[in-house]
Design a protein around this nucleic acid. Structure first.
Lengths: 205, 205
DNA sequence: GAAAATTGATTGATCAGTCAATCAATAAAT
DNA sequence: ATTTATTGATTGACTGATCAATCAATTTTC
């Protein structure tokens, strides 16, 4: 390569970071490429040069959030010993300080809406859904059996997303503790019930 | 008034209906006044004449959805005898055919996102939240006591919203039965637990 | 004929995307 | 160690299109 190595990556990172800030501040994707570029300290034309178009820049921004979340989940799962701890790890990752702040939550919601009209965005969100579901099913399976694990994973995923959705309308800082407490309570109820059913002979062989 | 009475109301209704269709089809608020007006069979200028501006037209559309939902809930609550039936009535209203179709769900999500940047939209959504919460707390109170009712109403509200949110990414027609079944299951678990706690002496006097 | 309804034409502003032209860093050649 | 060639980085200026909003003029209704 001829010019400085790594410059391009730095610029891309700066543009993605700027996009993240602009989107969360405006609360919508109605941000101009010029605003994002100005914030990143470059010209609007450069954003097109690196990303091809506005949509591609925003998709890259979405991918960035998704990656950050995945890394967070994986790290927390590593230090989880039991299946029950794995469940808690996933919940704590979902509402950890990196994911559950106003800015990030707003941006997620914006992406959800965008998925209504952007196949690319829809695809990325379904990646998130599948990953979350897979992690949850895996953790629940040993505790409840396969079928129940599937059912609970679906319900818990929806519940998590719902808590996120409601956060956008709350005023004041997010209360991650309360959010996790509610979800843990739900998990405990499901597990208690699964345990009871086992003793009444409805469990797996 | 001089010209035909009720004409204005008809026009407004037609414009709101057209806005509803356009928004759900595009999956965003990036619809032009011209598109909405054409669908309603009038000129774009008339939309401004009646509503003042695009935002006001969309707010009116939102209010329309909100009213439709309220009417549905009230009707179903009337034929509910017990508190437990009241809970089911609210759930069945939330996922009844009028509320839980692709078009309506998409539109709700669009409004949620709009609330990030429109105080008017945020206000309307918080009206919905308060009403739902009030109805749920009222139904649960006799079964679980005040404090638990508040907690459960919050959790159930989030869970409901989450199911809506996930519906927008599903393909195929909405499965209201499955949605309600999951929520009823959650309610039953909470009520079972409340019952058990009563017998272990942690209930109300 | 007065009041409301309705429209066509227009305006002013906003943006995404394009392009031709420089700039700067490195590699290659001597 | 210079010089030169190469290539990515970067920009400013421009364009074509889109749209909300306005308003003066016309039609409809009573």
């Amino acid at each position: 390569m001829a010019p400085r190595a790594g410059l391009a990556e730095n610029r891309k990172r700066a543009l993605i970071g700027a996009a993240l800030l602009e989107i969360s501040e405006r609360g919508s994707l109605e941000v101009t490429v010029a605003q994002i570029a100005r914030r990143a300290g470059v010209s609007p034309a450069l954003a097109h040069h690196y990303f091809g178009g506005k949509d591609d820049l925003i998709l890259a921004t979405m991918r960035h959030l998704l990656t950050r979340f995945r890394v967070d989940v994986v790290a927390r799962l590593k230090s989880a010993g039991t299946p029950r701890e794995r469940i808690s790890a996933i919940l704590r990752a979902s509402f950890g300080p990196e994911q559950f702040d106003d800015s990030t939550v707003n941006t997620w919601l914006t992406f959800y809406t965008w998925a209504l009209s952007s196949p690319g965005a829809a695809r990325l969100l379904s990646v998130y859904h599948r990953r979350l579901r897979r992690n949850l099913v895996h953790a629940f399976r040993d505790l409840t059996g396969r079928a129940e694990a599937e059912r609970i994973a679906g319900a818990l995923g929806a519940y998590i997303d719902g808590v996120y959705l409601r956060e956008v309308l709350r005023s004041g800082p997010p209360d991650a503790g309360a959010a996790v407490a509610g979800l843990e309570h739900y998990v405990d109820m499901e597990l208690t019930q699964a345990e009871n059913q086992k003793f009444s002979g409805v469990g797996a062989p």
